[in-house]
Design a protein around this nucleic acid. Structure first.
Length: 901
RNA sequence: GCCGGAGUGGCGGAACUGGUAUACGCGCGCGACUCAAAAUCGCGUGGCCCUAGGUCAUGUGGGUUCGAGUCCCACCUCCGGCACCA
C-alpha cells in the first residue's frame, strides 16, 4: 500500500532544501561579488603567513582560544562558527590594537563515532579521522578565520599522544593515578565504562543508552586531592558566574562534623557525617547504606533475613530506578542499637537506600525533626521525631532552617552557628568526633574499554606490579587490529591484540603485559591549549620560554556543555603541571565566554498505526503521559513523526504536513541529524559569501544567547556589505568596477562626527563582545555618511579598518583597491576624536508629570532655567502644566526636563 | 523540588549607573528609477481614537519614585543545570 504522503521519522537525512530555494529568488546580480575575491584572500593569508605568531617580548601577547572541535563525519553546521567568528573578530581587533595574538586551532580527534564507524565498516578510525579533519579545516578556512595554521594540533597524532602519555606518567609517579576495583557505570551498548560526568539520568550522555552499575578494576585519577583548589581558585578567573557555580556544585564541598555513635553490644561504632552537628540531640536513629560494611556484622538473627533480602534488592536496583522512586522511603531495622554520643540514648540502626555509600561515611545520623528525608523515613516507619531547633512546627513537617537550639543540653539557647561550633568543640574534647569537610566530587574514572584512545604507558609485570614505559620510549602507539567491536565480556578490543599486549620490560627483559584499556577523550583536551604555544617541540611538552610568554589563555570560548567536564579536568591537569613547576599560572583560562547555541527548527506531528491504517494527529489532539504521547480521544499511545523543514507546507503562516491537512508543531531545539534540522554553513557561504555569513551570525543577537537559525536576515547584512562596496567603487560605463577616488579634505562636520561616534561605539562594543550593536552602528554609518556630501578619503580609510574584523575579505579587497599593498590586519585601530563626540546642541524631552509632552533642542550646556523657559514656551507643555508655578522641576542635563505641578 | 537565565512590535533584537521604549536588521506598505521586472535608492511602519493631539503598550498583579523594560514583593511561562550528597 502506498503511503498517504511522505513523512519521515527519526534518522536518515539529506541537506535542507528549504534554505537554498529562498536564496535563489532573492539573490541579485550585484557588483558586490564576494565569490570573486574571498577565496583569493584566504589563500593569500595562508601563503603569506599573515597570521603566524612568534614570541616577541617587545609586544604584549594575547592568547585567544576556541574549544577545539571533534571532527565528526557530518562536518560543521551553522552553530559551530558562532563562537569561532566571535573569537576571530576579537583576535583581529586585538592585532590592530598592537597585541601579539596567538589564535590557533586543532582537533580533539579521539572519540567514539570514529570507532563506531570502524566497527561497522572495518575502516581504521585514523582514516576517517584524517578525512574528517580535512573537511573541517576547509570549512573553517572558507570562513576566513585568522588561525595560525602552522600550530594545528591533533590529539591522535603520535607526536601529541607522546606528551599526553608523558603527563599521565607524571600523574602516576605522584600517586595521582591508581587502579582500583570500583563500582562503575558500564554501558553494554557502548561496550565501555563511563565517568560519572558522562552519565545523565542513568543513561549515557552519548547516545542515551542504559548504564548499569558494576564493580570493575579501573584506572582512577585522584582529582579529589585538588578539590579545594578547584573551588578556591575560581575566585581568580573571569568566568560567567553560572559556570563557576556549576563547578562549585559539582565539587560540592560541605563543611560539618563527623561523629561516632558507639554500638550497643558490638565492638566499635558507626561514624556519621553531618553538616548540622547542632542537631545531634535530635538524632533518633542511625541509617547505614545497604553496601555499608557494618551491615553484615551487626544485624541481629531475627532481622537477618529481612536485611539480606533488602540489601540484595537494593543492589540490583539501578540508579535510574532509585531516582524514580526517590521520595518513597524504604528500609529495614537491623536489630542493632547505637548510642547517641551527646546524651547516651540508645538509637536503632536501620539500613536504607536513601543513604549513599559513596558520600561521606556511608552512614548518617537521622534527625527527622530537621531533615526532610529523615522526616519522611521516620513517618513511614513510626520513628520518634524531636524538635531541637526552633522556627518550624515539626508536627507538620521538618524544619531545616536555622534557629535557636532547644532540648539540646549544653546547646540550649544558642543560635545555629554558635551551636555548631560549640558541639564540634565538645565532640573533639570527648574524642567522639571532629570537624570534617566532605565533597561530592569523586575521583575521575580514567579508563575506557575502547580502541580509539591513548594507550596507557603502563606495563603489568608477572609479579603483579605495575611500571611505566620509560619516557624515551613514548609514545606507546596503538596496534593495528581488525576487529574494533566490544567483546561483550568487559575486555577492551586491545586485549585481543596479543602481540602488542605481550611484551617485555625494556629494563629487565622480563615478560610484561601492556595495559589494554585506553584513556578517555578528555585526556587530550585537558592540555591541548599548552601544546599550541610550542606545537613542534620534540624535547618537551613546550619550552619554558613559550610558557612564560604565552600563558595563560586570555580568552577561551566554547559551549556551556563543557562546564563541568572538560573545564574541570583541564584545570586539574593544569594544577598538577603547576605543582611540577611546568606552568607558572595557577589557572589555565582567564576569561571564559559561552556562545549560545544556534538551534534548528523542526516540525512534528504524531501517528497511530495500531489499526494498520496510519492516522496522523496534530499536537492539539495529543497529551503527554510522562514522556509518552497519547491521543486525547482514544487514549492510544502515539509515536512522534518528524517532517523535514523543506517538506513543510505553509498555509497562512501555519505549518502543515506535506499532503494531508495535519497541522504541525514547530519545535526549536539543538541541531541534530535525527531531526533533520541541521544547516550547513557551506550553502550560506556559497550564496552570500563568508563575510555575510560572519556578519549575520554576529548580528543575530547577543553572543551568549541561544537563537533559532533562520535565513531571513541574511539579505539584510549582505545588502549592507554591498552598500559598503559601492561606497568604495565607481561603476564604470563598461560595467567594470573601478576603485573610487575619494575626495581630499576632512569632510563635513556631520561626517566627522559620525565617524567619531562610530569609532567610539564599535570600539566599546568590541571590548564587551556586543558585536550585534557594533554592526548596527556600522550600518548607520554606511546609511548616513553620504547624506550631506561625498565621503572623503580621510573618513573612508578608518571606516574600512573598523569593519575589517567582521568582514575581513571585503575590507582587504577594498583596502588593496585603494592602493595599499600590505594587508590591513596590522594597521593601527582608529581612535575617536573626543571633541567630536560631544554635540553642541541636544534634544531634550520635556515631561509634565512624567509624561513626554514635547521635545526641544537646546545648547548642550544650557542651564535648567534656560531649558525650563524654552519648555514653557511650547504650547503643549503650557496646556498640560497649566498656569501655576511648577511644584518641582527635575532636570537631567542632555536628557530631559520633568515638570511636576 | 532546588539553583541559575530569559520573557520588549508580525519576526531577530536595542535601550549607558532609574531618565525621550521599540536603535539596527527582517517583513510589510508607498514612492523614485525602468518600456517592464529585478536590483538599487527614498519615505513610512506598536495598538486604538477622525486629526492637532490623546490614550494604552516591555509575561501577569501589586509596590517604591517626579519618572520603572530597568529597583522591590507575589505569581505565570520558557530554557539550562542539579536532583535522596546528610
Amino acid at each position: 500500500m502506498p503511503p498517504v504522503y511522505r513523512i519521515r521519522s527519526g534518522s536518515g537525512r539529506r541537506s535542507n532544501p528549504l534554505t537554498l530555494r529562498r536564496f535563489r529568488t532573492k539573490m541579485p546580480p550585484m557588483p558586490y561579488a564576494p565569490r570573486e575575491f574571498e577565496r583569493r584572500w584566504q589563500e593569500r593569508w595562508v601563503e603569506q603567513g599573515t597570521f603566524r605568531s612568534e614570541i616577541d617580548p617587545s609586544r604584549p601577547k594575547f592568547y585567544v582560544l576556541d574549544m577545539f572541535p571533534y571532527p565528526s563525519g557530518e562536518g560543521l553546521h551553522v552553530g559551530h562558527p558562532k563562537g569561532y567568528v566571535a573569537t576571530d573578530v576579537f583576535a583581529r581587533y586585538k592585532r590592530m590594537r598592537g597585541f601579539n595574538v596567538l589564535h590557533p586551532m586543532g582537533w580533539d580527534a579521539f572519540g567514539l563515532p570514529a570507532e563506531q564507524h570502524a566497527v561497522k565498516t572495518g575502516q581504521h578510525p585514523a582514516v576517517t579521522t584524517a578525512r574528517n579533519i580535512g573537511r573541517y579545516r576547509e570549512q573553517l578556512q572558507a570562513l576566513g578565520l585568522s588561525y595560525d595554521w602552522t600550530r594545528e594540533v591533533d590529539t591522535t597524532d603520535p607526536g601529541f599522544v607522546r606528551w599526553t602519555q608523558w603527563i599521565f606518567a607524571r600523574l602516576f609517579e605522584r600517586g595521582l593515578a591508581y587502579e582500583a576495583e570500583v563500582p562503575v557505570n558500564w554501558c553494554p551498548k557502548l561496550g565501555t565504562v563511563l565517568a560519572n560526568e558522562e552519565v545523565r539520568d542513568g543513561k549515557s550522555d552519548i547516545g542515551g543508552h542504559p548504564v548499569v552499575r558494576l564493580p570493575m578494576k579501573q584506572w582512577m585519577l585522584r582529582i579529589t586531592e585538588y578539590a579545594d583548589r578547584l573551588v578556591d581558585d575560581l575566585e581568580q578567573v573571569d568566568w560567567p558566574e553560572h559556570i563557576k557555580k556549576m563547578q562549585r556544585d559539582w565539587v560540592g564541598r560541605s563543611e560539618g562534623a563527623s561523629a561516632r555513635f558507639a554500638l550497643v553490644g558490638h565492638e566499635g561504632g558507626v561514624d556519621v557525617f553531618t553538616t548540622r552537628p547542632d542537631t545531634l540531640f535530635g538524632a533518633t536513629y542511625v541509617v547505614l547504606a545497604p553496601e555499608h560494611e557494618l551491615v553484615g556484622r551487626i544485624t541481629s538473627e531475627e532481622q537477618r533475613n529481612a536485611v539480606e533480602t533488602y540489601v540484595e534488592a537494593a543492589g540490583r536496583k539501578s540508579d535510574r530506578a532509585r531516582m524514580i522512586e526517590s521520595g518513597e522511603k524504604t528500609g529495614v531495622f537491623t536489630g542493632a542499637y547505637a548510642t547517641n554520643p551527646v546524651n547516651g540514648e540508645p538509637v536503632p540502626v536501620w539500613v536504607a537506600d536513601y543513604v549513599l555509600i559513596s558520600y561521606g561515611t556511608g552512614a548518617i545520623m537521622a534527625v527527622p525533626g530537621h531533615d526532610e528525608r529523615d522526616y519522611a523515613f521516620a513517618k513511614t516507619f513510626g520513628l520518634p521525631i524531636v524538635e531541637v531547633v526552633t522556627g518550624g512546627d515539626v508536627s507538620v513537617q521538618a524544619f531545616s532552617g536555622e534557629g535557636i537550639a532547644v532540648h539540646s543540653g549544653l546547646l540550649d539557647g544558642l543560635p545555629t552557628d554558635e551551636a555548631k561550633t560549640r558541639i564540634i568543640d565538645w565532640l573533639e574534647e570527648q574524642g567522639v568526633g571532629e570537624r570534617t569537610i566532605n565533597y561530592k566530587l569523586r575521583d575521575w574514572l580514567f579508563s575506557r574499554q575502547r580502541y580509539w584512545g591513548e594507550p596507557f604507558p603502563i606495563l603489568h609485570l608477572e609479579d603483579g606490579t605495575k611500571k611505566l614505559v620509560p619516557d624515551d620510549q613514548l609514545p606507546v602507539e596503538l596496534p593495528m587490529i581488525d576487529d574494533y567491536a566490544p567483546s561483550g565480556d568487559f575486555e577492551p578490543p586491545l586485549a585481543r591484540a596479543r602481540e602488542w599486549v605481550e611484551t617485555t620490560d625494556p629494563e629487565t627483559g622480563q615478560p610484561a603485559r601492556r595495559e589494554a584499556n585506553t584513556m578517555p577523550q578528555w585526556a587530550g583536551s585537558s592540555w591541548y591549549y599548552l601544546r599550541f604555544i610550542d606545537p613542534h617541540n620534540e624535547d618537551a611538552l613546550f619550552s619554558p620560554d613559550a610558557e612564560k610568554y604565552w600563558m595563560n589563555v586570555d580568552l577561551y570560548v566554547g559551549g556551556a556543555e563543557h562546564a563541568v567536564l572538560h573545564l574541570l579536568y583541564a584545570r586539574f591537569w593544569h594544577k598538577v603541571l603547576y605543582d611540577l613547576g611546568l606552568v607558572s599560572t595557577v589557572e589555565p583560562f582567564q576569561k571564559l565566554l559561552n556562545p549560545g547555541m544556534i538551534q534548528g527548527k523542526s516540525y512534528r506531528c504524531f501517528s497511530d498505526e495500531s489499526d494498520g491504517d496510519t492516522k496522523y494527529y496534530s499536537p492539539g489532539d495529543v497529551r503527554f503521559e510522562g514522556e509518552v504521547p497519547v491521543h486525547v480521544g482514544s487514549g492510544r499511545q502515539l509515536s512522534e513523526e518528524w517532517v523535514e523543514p523543506g517538506d513543510v507546507r505553509w498555509n497562512g503562516g501555519r505549518p502543515l504536513a506535506p499532503s494531508v491537512d495535519v497541522e504541525l508543531e514547530e519545535v526549536i531545539e539543538k541541531m541534530s541529524k535525527s531531526r533533520g534540522n541541521v544547516v550547513n554553513p557551506d550553502d550560506v557561504v556559497h550564496e552570500y559569501g563568508a563575510d555575510s555569513m560572519r556578519l549575520y551570525e554576529m548580528f543575530m543577537g547577543p553572543l551568549d544567547r541561544a537563537v533559532p537559525w533562520s535565513v531571513d536576515g541574511i539579505p539584510g547584512v549582505h545588502r549592507f556589505l554591498a552598500r559598503v562596496y559601492r561606497l568604495y567603487t565607481d561603476e564604470d560605463p563598461d560595467g567594470v568596477d573601478a576603485p573610487r577616488k575619494h575626495a581630499e579634505g576632512d569632510g563635513t562636520d556631520g561626517q566627522r562626527r559620525l565617524l567619531a561616534k562610530t569609532i567610539d561605539k564599535v570600539t566599546r562594543d568590541f571590548e564587551s563582545f556586543d558585536l550585534n550593536t557594533a554592526i548596527s552602528q556600522l550600518m548607520v554609518f554606511a546609511r548616513d555618511i553620504e547624506k550631506d556630501g561625498p565621503m572623503p578619503a580621510s573618513i573612508a580609510q578608518p571606516f574600512l579598518l573598523l569593519l575589517s574584523p567582521l568582514a575581513p575579505h571585503l575590507c582587504e579587497e577594498l583596502w588593496q583597491r585603494q592602493g595599499h599593498t600590505e594587508s590591513l590586519a596590522y594597521e593601527t585601530w582608529p581612535e575617536a576624536d573626543a571633541d567630536l563626540l560631544v554635540d553642541d546642541e541636544v534634544e531634550i524631552a520635556v515631561q509634565v508629570q512624567g509624561k513626554v509632552r514635547a521635545k526641544i533642542r537646546v545648547p548642550a550646556d544650557a542651564d535648567e532655567e534656560a531649558v525650563l523657559a524654552a519648555a514653557m514656551a511650547v504650547d503643549n507643555v503650557q496646556k498640560h502644566a497649566g498656569d501655576g508655578k511648577p511644584r518641582r522641576v527635575i532636570y537631567v542635563p542632555g536628557r530631559l526636563l520633568n515638570i511636576v505641578v
